[in-house]
Design a protein around this nucleic acid. Structure first.
Length: 519
RNA sequence: GGCAGCGUAGCUCAGUGGUAGAGCAGGGGAAUCAUAAUCCCUUGGUCGGGGGUUCAAAUCCCUCCGCUGCUACCA
């Protein structure tokens, strides 16, 4: 396979009406881990996130706070940029749907659809809830005593009828089904795929793709009374960012499209797995290679909600537990794709058990012995025993297993695999008892400590995508230069060099003690 | 209502025909290099209930109970 195949991964663009919470942080984190992993594996990566800034809700929120929609969007979009810095996301681009490049791309895509006969003017009517920006079916509504109609969400609806452009989605049903069939891993996890297929099989209706009831959006080319439907606008960001409509040889589009992965929350799967590929195919463009729908977090067993006020701010987590710890927990605690629960107890278990005790203490106990007994330098190994080879072999096998897991977004299994080697290493320390060898067989002690240090190097290189800060400190402690930390250095020929001077070890993963307990 | 999925040790989950598993939690022990961390041993499950197929079922079929998701234009 091409060794330097480019990889393009995207987060959804976040709606500026929201305040960033753990859910946003989670989606982007998963992409970041993937992006970092693939870069370390030697591929060019484009990692995109951004904000979705159009729509009636934004218009209304802006008005309510006495701002122009643009000023409002500027202000709130910044919250998501700040999240990038807080979480140390290695993004390559941050797109905003109000940027000129995006307006141009949307209008170009619209024209392409129009030129292909995929758009027609009709009219849309139905019960509409302004608050929800959504139409509801007659059967979904309840009528109050005074004759008002209320949507399931509690919002009042009104009858509206407006001219609207439609996309011929109904014509794409068979093509989509064939596409799902030919690309069985297009939608992950598999359960979600089945839902989407069932939905498409149940029949597709044409999709209203323009609105006239508000103006904060991208004007429809040639009919400026209409603005584009928010999803057509929003989804297009993925091609905007690779320079669409410039698609020629040498363009970013040519290099990175189709995207390898759109990471999304399970609530917006349909837009990405049905409408988006249909839009693209209808415009003569290639659909993305994969859409992964991940699950939601609950907090201490309860659903996150505004009314409960229990949404977790990423900043609070990072300040309380540390960035690497937070990133590790989110990627390790829950099988990726499932819903999961965030609890203080589980967090502490991961921080103290997995990080402080297993990983951190392994590094500390090994490097302390090296510091004291090997003149503060990488020791010189003698011949390797079977046990030595076994541990080194397990460590060297990690890269392949990690690759395999990440190919299907198995973040938790990747970490599980790495931790099995950390467990092997701790057992090996106990079995070999280098503290006893110090007196009986110093040469053998050197070999044991070398094997351990090299195992830790392998592990630390591989934990970089999840915990960039801590992994980097561990590699510093091992005397590995900053430019020697790619996956291409995991082989034997780049193993630790005996004699390399090492700094005094410092704890990398402190135990977390509850402030109440400490007092 | 329809379609799909799930229900396995206290907790989170793996296991899809061949003598019930992991991590954490609980109990006992060893060691002392290390962030009192580590290592070993161990308690614990009639695999949601019932019926069936099979030499053999957590695993296949039927049925019942419970839970969840999807069932179009809300990020």
């Amino acid at each position: 396979m091409a060794a330097h195949k480019p990889y393009y991964v995207t987060t959804p663009i976040y709606y500026v009406n929201d305040v960033p919470h753990i859910g946003h942080a989670y989606t982007t984190l998963a992409c970041d881990v993937l992006a970092r992993f693939i870069r370390l594996d030697g591929h060019p990566v484009k990692f995109l996130t951004g904000t979705d800034e159009h729509g009636q809700k934004v218009e209304k929120s802006a008005m309510a706070s006495g701002e122009t929609p643009q000023a409002f969007a500027d202000r709130v979009s910044q919250n998501f940029r700040d999240l990038t810095r807080l979480m140390d996301y290695s993004i390559d681009d941050f797109i905003r749907t109000t940027e000129p490049r995006h307006v141009a791309a949307c209008q170009a895509l619209w024209k392409a659809l129009e030129a292909n006969g995929q758009i027609y003017l009709g009219s849309y009517s139905g019960w509409y809830a302004v608050r929800d920006e959504a139409f509801y079916g007659e059967d979904e509504l309840t009528v109050t005593g005074d004759g008002r109609r209320i949507a399931p969400s509690g919002a009042e609806v009104e009858w509206v009828e407006e001219p609207s452009y439609f996309f011929r989605l109904s014509e794409w049903q068979e093509r989509l089904l064939r596409f799902y069939d030919e690309h069985p891993d297009f939608i992950l996890p598999a359960g979600k795929r089945n839902e989407v297929v069932a939905f498409v099989k149940s029949g597709l209706k044409d999709l209203s793709i323009s609105r006239t009831t508000f103006s904060w959006g991208i004007p429809v080319p040639g009919d400026e009374r209409h603005v584009m439907y928010v999803w057509l606008d929003a989804l297009t960001n993925y091609v905007t960012a690779v320079g669409y409509p410039e698609t020629g040889a040498g363009s970013d589009y040519a290099a990175f499209w189709p995207a390898n992965l759109h990471m999304v929350g399970k609530d917006i799967l349909r837009f990405h797995a049905v409408y988006w590929p249909a839009f693209l195919m209808a415009a003569g463009l290639e659909p993305p290679r994969r859409v992964f729908a991940h699950g939601w977090w609950t907090v201490e067993g309860q659903k996150m909600s505004k009314s409960l006020g229990n949404a977790i701010a990423p900043r609070e987590l990072v300040e309380t537990y540390g960035l690497d710890q937070t990133r590790y927990f989110l990627m390790r605690e829950v099988p990726f794709g499932n819903d999961g629960d965030f609890s203080r107890r589980a967090m502490l278990q991961r921080i103290n058990g997995d990080l402080a005790n297993d990983y951190g203490n392994l590094v500390q106990r090994v490097l302390s012995m090296v510091q004291k007994n090997c003149a503060a330098a990488v020791p010189t190994p003698g011949p390797f025993t079977e046990a030595d080879e076994r541990l080194l072999g397990a460590a060297r096998a990690l890269l392949d297993s990690c690759r395999r897991e990440l190919q299907v977004q198995g973040f938790h299994r990747m970490l599980e695999t790495i931790w099995s080697v950390i467990g092997d290493a701790n057992r090996y320390v106990d079995e070999q008892a280098p503290w006893a060898l110090r007196k009986t067989d110093p040469a053998r002690m050197n070999t044991v400590l070398y094997v351990l240090a090299e195992t830790i190097r392998q592990v630390a290189v591989l934990t970089q995508p999840v915990m960039p800060g801590a992994s980097s400190r561990i590699l510093d402690l091992l005397g590995v230069a900053a430019d020697e930390r790619g996956f291409d250095r995991l082989g034997d020929k780049d193993a630790l060099k005996p004699g390399t001077p090492l700094p005094p070890p410092q704890g990398v993963f402190p135990r977390h003690v509850e402030p109440e307990d400490a007092a």
